[in-house]
Write a protein that binds this DNA or RNA. Structure first.
Lengths: 163, 163
DNA sequence: TTTTGATTTGTTATAGTATAACGGAACATT
DNA sequence: AATGTTCCGTTATACTATAACAAATCAAAA
């Protein structure tokens, strides 16, 4: 559990965050012969523009501003594509989407979601997932996909709200 | 990870399952001075009637049949109460609800959800949760609540669908 | 270069999930 | 019986997501 935690560092250069993510996305799609169309690219950028998970309907107005059609299917299609490519994840507890900080690498991530500032961070959960799969297999259950979502308080909010 | 796995045993006496759950619920509420009203009791029973997580809107018709009002708030209120009492859990990946097999005991459960038959089982995940909390705390994140949901294939479906 | 087939997008409609708000009924005391 | 609290009925609406089909775009073959 060590990657993708930059969001908890208050003063990082978020523009660079975004640019790096966009670059990775472009080269990944190119390598896979997938089309990162203008809509998809814009949606990805919007998702990356905050470290807080974004609801689909929060994305729509920005699409409209950019001159695209902005009915729900537009954004959901883009999000579906981005999820298939591993570029964004959906957080079930929030019905919201967040950029993946290390697409490409097959990974096992859990989300640490701050109840106060809504920031969400993807942390590696390889060990925990292995443990769960192993225990599940003792019950005869074969694991295919895991969703680990953690609610709590991030270091910044803890600091500012010492009780 | 050893409790609540009875749902994977094909031929258990499910009526007894239900009756035991209802008895536990009644005594728990009594002990806590909480009112397990007819609506709440019926909703709990309906949720228990299948080992498959039940959507709120699947519960409504049965409420109507039983002569109760059956607008959404009715069932959501009952479900909210039952969740607060730890009698049912919500599975975020499915927007659905399932009875808790061991209410009262503070517990740390994950859900093993079969993609084929939709059966969901609550399994103990104390160790995995401890591991996650511990890793999260290294990032300065304080865990308050965890949601671990696993999709896969249950032993019955694996048996019947040997590939 | 035109044709062809596949993919992507626009558009309208609708399905599915959940809550707000307020008044009235039932309950548990005083 | 009076009172305050909790619960329920009711209407309306918000939020999340997908179905279905036509039009446009793209990408490779003819």
């Amino acid at each position: 559990m060590a990657s993708g935690t930059i969001a908890f560092e208050s003063h990082h250069d978020h523009n660079q965050c975004i640019e790096q993510a966009m670059d990775e996305a472009r080269s990944l799609c190119k390598a896979r012969n997938q089309r990162l169309t203008p809509i998809r690219e814009l949606v990805l950028k919007l998702v990356w523009q905050s470290h807080k998970p974004l609801g689909a309907y929060e994305i729509l107005p920005a699409l409209a501003e950019a001159g695209f059609n902005s009915a729900p299917p537009t954004v959901y299609r883009a999000l579906d594509f981005l999820q298939e490519q591993g570029l964004v994840h959906r957080i079930a507890l929030l019905n919201a989407f967040i950029g993946c900080p290390h697409p490409g690498k097959s990974h096992h991530g859990c989300f640490l979601i701050c109840r106060h500032c809504n920031t969400a961070v993807e942390a590696d959960s390889r060990d925990a997932e292995a443990l769960i799969s192993q225990q599940a297999s003792k019950l005869g259950f074969t694991t295919e996909q895991q969703s680990i979502e953690v609610l709590g308080c991030c270091p910044n909010c803890r600091e500012h709200a010492e009780e």
